[in-house]
């Protein structure tokens, strides 16, 4: 069973008007990659891998990380992550590798760049604004009330 299947069938449900239940995507008979459902022996490395996997987006399930998806492609990507971490790569290198293949889409952890800077600028502006509002509303009014 997989998230893609669910995703598709929910789409199918939404679109289909009295169509017969559509046969869903067939599954590959190939067993999942070795490290798709197997943890690394070193708990430290596994923890690092796990943390990284939670921040990588599954290609087919659309809105889920590869750490919580049953889609075969997510399993294969978990294998890639675990193998690379086990080989001593830093999580940032693995992330950078995947971004070089799929663009920023693959990572749930946006880095500051020409396309993402507003994501970081806006909270700063909000922080300043919050400070300003408090200073203006409360600081001055406080004196007035005293």
């Amino acid at each position: 069973m997989n998230r893609l299947g669910r995703y598709l069938s929910s789409m199918v449900l939404a679109i289909a008007v009295l169509a017969m239940p559509v046969t869903l995507i067939a599954q590959s008979t190939m067993p999942p990659a070795p490290y798709a459902y197997t943890q690394l022996d070193d708990p430290q490395q596994e923890a690092v891998a796990r943390e990284l996997m939670e921040t990588l987006r599954c290609l087919q399930c659309q809105s889920q990380s590869i750490a919580d998806s049953d889609a075969p492609v997510a399993g294969d990507m978990r294998h890639q992550v675990r193998v690379r971490i086990a080989a001593g790569e830093h999580p940032d290198e693995v992330r950078a590798y995947l971004i070089s293949r799929y663009g920023d889409y693959i990572s749930y952890d946006p880095q500051i760049s020409t396309t993402t800077w507003p994501l970081f600028a806006v909270p700063v502006v909000l922080l300043l604004l919050a400070g300003l509002v408090m200073w203006r509303r409360l600081g001055r009014k406080g004196e007035a009330a005293t």
Binding site: S107, P110, L119
Partner: peptide, 25 residues
């Protein structure tokens, strides 16, 4: 922030750039 993070991918998509905003943000 939640509004921004949720809608930001929609905004960049209008410029044909796809980004993901998730828990690490």
């Amino acid at each position: 922030i939640v509004l921004l993070g949720t809608l930001y991918p929609l905004l960049t998509e209008a410029f044909d750039v796809r980004v993901s905003v998730g828990p690490p943000y």
